[in-house]
C-alpha cells in the first residue's frame, strides 16, 4: 500500500516541483523602469556611480514631478540599491538664482531598484532662466560620495498643476502642487496635494499648518459632487483626501486654505482636471 502511494505521489510531487521551478525561471524580473521615461543620465564624479533619472510623464512639467533614480556602479555596471541621494534644484536667471521645493528619497534603500524622489519646479524654463538639479550621491556600496548636475527643460502642462498664493495671515508665500488624481475616473479618486512655504529663495520647507477645503465643480454645468474628503496633512507637506467625479469632462478642484480660524488665502485657487 505504502509503495503504491509512494509510486503515485512521488512522481506527482516531482512533476509539480519541476513545473514550479520552470515557472520561476520563466518569470524574469520585469524591468522596474517599464512605463517610465528616461530624462537624463550622467556620472556622479567622485562616487564612481552612474545616475539615470526617470519620470512618469514624458516631459518635465511646472509643478510636482516624481523622479525615479537608478544608480549603477560605473565600473561593474551593477545596480546600486543602497545610497543617500540629496537633491538641490536651482533656477539660474543670470542676475539671480532661486531653488524650488523638493522631496529627497525617504530611504537609503532603493524600492524595486529605484530611489523615488520629487521636485516641484515652480516656474517653466524660459529664455533667460534655466533649471538644473544638483544630485549629491553617497554610494553606500562603495562608500564613495560624488556630485552631478543635470539640466532640465521644464514646460507648462496643458492644465496647470501648481499654484501659489501670498498668505493673508502670515504674509508667507505658499506653493501648492497637485499630485493626485493623476489618472482621473468617474467615481472615487485619491486626492493629493503637496504644500511648501518659501522660507528663503533657497529653502522651501514642507508645510503642515493649513486646513484645506476641497470643492469640486463642473464649470460647464455648475454642479459639484457629493461625499468628497478634504485633503489633510499626512507628512512631508503632503495632504491626502478624496475627490469624486460624477461624470467625465472638465472639472475644477476649488481649494480654500485656512490657518486655524484665519483665512490663509483670500482668493479661491483651483486646479483643472479633464478626462
Amino acid at each position: 500500500m505504502k509503495k503504491i502511494i509512494l509510486s503515485i505521489f512521488l512522481p506527482a510531487l516531482l512533476f509539480i516541483l519541476v513545473i514550479s521551478s520552470c515557472k520561476k525561471e520563466e518569470n524574469v524580473e520585469p524591468d522596474p523602469t517599464l512605463g517610465l521615461t528616461k530624462q537624463a543620465e550622467g556620472y556622479a564624479v567622485g562616487a564612481a556611480t552612474k545616475v539615470v533619472v526617470y519620470t512618469k510623464e514624458a516631459l518635465v512639467y511646472t509643478g510636482y514631478n516624481k523622479f525615479y533614480i537608478a544608480l549603477y556602479d560605473s565600473v561593474t555596471g551593477k545596480r546600486v540599491d543602497e545610497a543617500h541621494i540629496h537633491l538641490m534644484p536651482m533656477m539660474n536667471m543670470g542676475a539671480m538664482q532661486h531653488s524650488a521645493p523638493y522631496d529627497n528619497p525617504i530611504s537609503e534603500n532603493a524600492a524595486n531598484h529605484l530611489f523615488p524622489c520629487s521636485v516641484v519646479f515652480i516656474m517653466p524654463s524660459m529664455g533667460g532662466g534655466s533649471w538644473t538639479v544638483n544630485l549629491n550621491v553617497h554610494n553606500h556600496v562603495s562608500d564613495k560620495e560624488g556630485e552631478l548636475t543635470i539640466p532640465f527643460t521644464v514646460v507648462d502642462p496643458a492644465k496647470s498643476k501648481m499654484k501659489s498664493f501670498t498668505a493673508a495671515h502670515d504674509g508667507g508665500k505658499y506653493f501648492i502642487s497637485l499630485i493626485e488624481p493623476s489618472a482621473p475616473k468617474v467615481g472615487i479618486n485619491d486626492m493629493e496635494i503637496a504644500i511648501y512655504k518659501r522660507a528663503t529663495m533657497m529653502s522651501f520647507p514642507a508645510d503642515s499648518s493649513l486646513l484645506v477645503t476641497l470643492t469640486p465643480e463642473m464649470p460647464t454645468m455648475g454642479h459639484g459632487s457629493p461625499n468628497n474628503v478634504n485633503p489633510a496633512h499626512t507628512g512631508n507637506g503632503h495632504y491626502k483626501g478624496k475627490v469624486n467625479f460624477t461624470m467625465t469632462g472638465l472639472w475644477k478642484l476649488n481649494l480654500d486654505y485656512m490657518a486655524g480660524t484665519a483665512v490663509a488665502d483670500t482668493t479661491t485657487q483651483f486646479f483643472e482636471v479633464q478626462f
Binding site: 468617474v186 463642473m218 460647464t220 454645468m221 460624477t246 461624470m247 467625465t248 469632462g249 472638465l250 479633464q274 478626462f275
Partner: peptide
C-alpha cells in the same frame, strides 16, 4: 452631454 468647445461629459 455635449457642449461646444468642451469634452463630452459622460456618466452612467
Amino acid at each position: 452631454m455635449y457642449q461646444a468647445g468642451q469634452p463630452n461629459m459622460y456618466m452612467l
